[in-house]
Computed example of a mutant assay.
Amino acid sequence: MIKIKTREEIELMRESALIVSKTLGILAKEVKPGVTTLYLDKLAEEFIRDHGAKPGFLGLYDFPNTLCMSPNAQVVHGIPNDKPLEEGDIISIDCGALKNGFYGDHAYTFQVGEVAEDVKQLLQITKESLYVGIREFKVGNRIGDVGFAIQNYCENHGYGVVRELVGHGLGRDMHEDPEMPNYGRRGRGKKFVEGMVVAIEPMVNLGTQHINQLNDGWTILTKDGKPSAHFEHDVAIVNGKPELLSTFKYIYEALGIESNEEDEFRQNF
Results as ranks from 00 to 15, higher is better:
M1V: 13
T6W: 13
T6V: 11
R7A: 11
R7N: 11
I10W: 01
I10L: 02
E11D: 10
E11I: 04
M13S: 07
I19H: 02
V20R: 07
S21Y: 00
T23K: 10
G25L: 07
G25K: 02
A28C: 06
V31A: 05
V31E: 07
K32W: 04
K32V: 05
P33D: 05
P33F: 07
P33W: 05
V35H: 07
V35Q: 11
T37G: 09
L40H: 12
D41F: 13
R49Y: 08
D50Q: 11
H51G: 02
P55N: 06
G56R: 04
G56W: 05
F57Y: 12
G59E: 00
G59T: 01
G59P: 01
L60R: 02
D62M: 12
T66D: 13
L67T: 12
M69D: 10
A73W: 14
Q74W: 03
V76W: 01
G78N: 01
P80M: 12
P84I: 04
E86I: 06
E87W: 03
G88A: 04
D89W: 02
I90C: 06
I91R: 04
I91K: 04
I93N: 10
I93P: 10
K99Y: 11
N100T: 12
H106L: 10
H106P: 07
A107P: 10
Q111E: 15
V112I: 09
E114I: 06
V115S: 07
A116M: 12
V119A: 08
L122Y: 05
L123K: 11
I125V: 15
E128Y: 10
E128L: 13
L130W: 08
G133Q: 01
G133W: 00
E136H: 05
F137Q: 09
K138G: 06
K138F: 05
G140W: 05
R142L: 09
D145A: 07
I150A: 01
I150S: 02
Q151A: 10
Y153V: 03
G158N: 04
G158F: 02
Y159P: 03
Y159W: 04
Y159N: 02
G160S: 13
V161N: 06
V162K: 05
R163M: 12
L165I: 15
L165G: 08
G169M: 08
G169W: 06
L170V: 14
G171M: 07
R172Y: 13
R172Q: 14
M174Q: 05
E176N: 07
D177F: 14
E179C: 12
M180I: 15
N182T: 14
N182W: 04
Y183E: 13
G184D: 13
K191D: 04
G195K: 12
M196K: 05
V197A: 03
I200W: 09
P202T: 00
M203S: 03
N205P: 04
L206N: 09
Q209R: 15
H210C: 09
I211C: 07
I211N: 09
L214K: 09
D216W: 00
K223W: 14
D224S: 12
D224L: 08
K226F: 15
S228H: 01
F231W: 06
V235W: 08
N239W: 00
G240E: 01
E243L: 14
L245C: 04
L245G: 05
T247N: 00
F248N: 12
Y250V: 02
Y250T: 04
L255N: 01
S259C: 00
S259M: 00
E261P: 01
D263F: 06
F265V: 06
F265K: 09
N268M: 14
